[in-house]
Write a protein that binds this DNA or RNA. Sequence first.
DNA 1: CGGCTTATTGACAATGATTCCCGTTATCAA
DNA 2: TTGATAACGGGAATCATTGTCAATAAGCCG
Lengths: 127, 127
Amino acid sequence: MSAPTKRNTRQRTAIIDFLKTRKEFISAKELYSEMEDSKVGLSTIYRALSDLVNDGDLDVFIDNDGESRFRLCGSHHHHHLLCRKCGKSVEFQAPEAEALAERLGASEGFSEMEHRLEIIGTCQECA
Amino acid sequence: MSAPTKRNTRQRTAIIDFLKTRKEFISAKELYSEMEDSKVGLSTIYRALSDLVNDGDLDVFIDNDGESRFRLCGSHHHHHLLCRKCGKSVEFQAPEAEALAERLGASEGFSEMEHRLEIIGTCQECA
DNA sequence: CGGCTTATTGACAATGATTCCCGTTATCAA
DNA sequence: TTGATAACGGGAATCATTGTCAATAAGCCG
């Protein structure tokens, strides 16, 4: 994990271990109920997720119901292809997007660019 | 306006007219207070915004506080360059992104692709 | 191994955007 | 004008997320 700014507690370890076993995005509430055996409080889950996002260890996106969904991510910058029905996701890289962000931001006088690219479609099974 | 599914009431007209005068994104609450002279209820504002989004007349994005922000948009597909400090936004088109979405989605067996691209940076005044 | 200092936890309350409810009001066609 | 129905609006309800704060546990030092 990069830039660990927090102590290693039982709860944090449990959360990270759980996330490692999980490929798809998950919400804080779902994490809470799927981890009930670990006896981790909901506040603690929210705090841990927020720290992990700040450390860059977690991907987030806000779904159509306004709920945040999380997933461990690699260290490379990447994007997601998501199925609008089942939520299945595929990571991909897009050097075009990186370049575009730099070029376009610079031309408008912006600095410290970040970018987000999401492709949403219907996957084969759900079509 | 495309595909008008609703009646033209005083309130809806007032909301659309207000949005026409407004270049930047605005939240429902802000719209409510800036339009208080027009005596439009908050529920009505939410309903109208939601309908306009469904009709494709309004762009939305969810800001970092989880609040939705709206703006009238043209009919062409476009993306946004946003300032992370002041929220100033610039529209741009990115044919690369369109192509990428099609190509990548298809290669994973996805169909009916949509995509979102956002570039976030710090604008000159806020730097 | 104890004790100390301080970050972390967790139960619960509070917040805040959005949606729901429902009696009232406006619109429109006949 | 009237009746049917869509839209309003204000307040209550919802629900994810954040704040509070006393109790607990990490990491550390001797």
